[in-house]
Design a protein around this nucleic acid. Structure first.
Lengths: 196, 196
DNA sequence: TGTACATCAGTGAACGCGCGTTCACTGATGTAC
DNA sequence: TGTACATCAGTGAACGCGCGTTCACTGATGTAC
């Protein structure tokens, strides 16, 4: 494995990104070491530094990669899920999503950590946030004023992030409260998305 | 400082709790070491283990202590802030609150981390969450059905947590987006709290 | 197409460092009589 | 109230461990002629 073709090297890089992305979402950036990431990707930690300048760099790239994957899933590419506010909320606020943080949106999984890291991660979060809000705007009723749709898009995404974080936080001790939170936010956001 | 009266020992314990609570909110539980906490509280790390069984134990106690303090501030004890949904939201979703995570609600500061720690922290979070939701229920219009008030209370608190996490996440790279998020969620929640 | 050689992904030992936790020790504090 | 002694908060050295990062080395891969 020491001497690899370019193609193989690219695959290794992708494996590092995918592994890092998953583990960071599951256990937090501070909760996972580079050695473990490299090992799970089938490499040694030394190789990791041939692909990324630092753990912070890896975290930033992994965040963006996770965003891209979860965006594709969210928009329902290849699925028959309805592209509507209700359809999006059904997906985002499901218990399935709650129970698999490693496969879910990195913004949702790491919300309260991002502010403690560098400007780079912050900018990537901001980008992802606006895109997700834009997806909601795009499926809202045209009768709602543009500025109001923008406001609602931002608020819905923020609320969805909070709902998932809270639902995950209480899941271990109070599963029924966890479900209740998801349903309560779902109902409130669906109502709010119709405008006043 | 080695030989202290009971009273002094209690003060030291409180200092450890207050320091831990602040630092955990500012940098995350995984982001702060016990040595630093003890040092900032004016003790050595050895002393910390006379007051708490482990770092996890300290984290749980610090979380509850932070909850109690922030609850008092939130409910506006000793202030002339209005006890209403609008008054609560003004306070919780302010840029002041955003910029001082070390003094704000521990649920908001650590939302996405709690799910990765033990059942104990989860239960404390759940308790704090329900209390905060209850405070909102208590100031909502009586005309709204009880079950609906409960639903709204939970949804509002979840959304508020998400709004603050998102606002903090983007603050470093896009301060105006950060403000926009806080305002958007404020408007949406105020509207929602009036019932349909 | 063949040859000569720079590039480069990957290895694994090593770096210094800080982590959470334990422990022997100290002697003032607090208690029991 | 005085005395004898167990308790107990705090110290600081030490534990093993994992952290992020660096580096000398390897030799197949890819390129330049």
């Amino acid at each position: 494995m020491v001497y690899v073709k370019r193609e193989q090297a690219n695959e290794n890089r992708e494996a590092l990104l995918a592994t890092a992305s998953r583990l960071f979402r599951e256990r937090g950036i501070d909760g996972v070491g580079v050695a473990e990431i490299a090992r799970e990707a089938g490499l040694t930690h030394g190789a990791l530094y041939k692909h990324f300048r630092s753990k912070d760099d890896l975290a930033a790239e992994a965040f963006t990669q996770g965003l891209a994957l979860s965006r594709a899933a969210f928009r329902g590419e290849g699925s028959r899920r309805k592209r509507s506010v209700a359809g999006y909320l059904d997906y985002l606020l499901s218990s399935l999503n709650r129970d698999e943080p490693g496969a879910s949106c990195p913004m949702t999984a790491s919300a309260s950590e991002i502010g403690r890291h560098g400007r780079d991660l912050s900018a990537r979060f901001a980008q992802g946030f606006q895109e997700k809000a834009g997806a909601f705007e795009a499926v809202m009723d045209d009768a709602i004023a543009k500025a109001e749709r923008r406001r609602l898009g931002l608020a819905i995404v923020a609320a969805e992030i909070g709902a998932m974080a809270a639902a995950r936080a209480v899941a271990k001790s109070d599963p029924s409260l966890s479900d209740e939170i998801l349903k309560a936010v779902h109902a409130m956001l669906l109502q709010a998305s119709k405008g006043q």
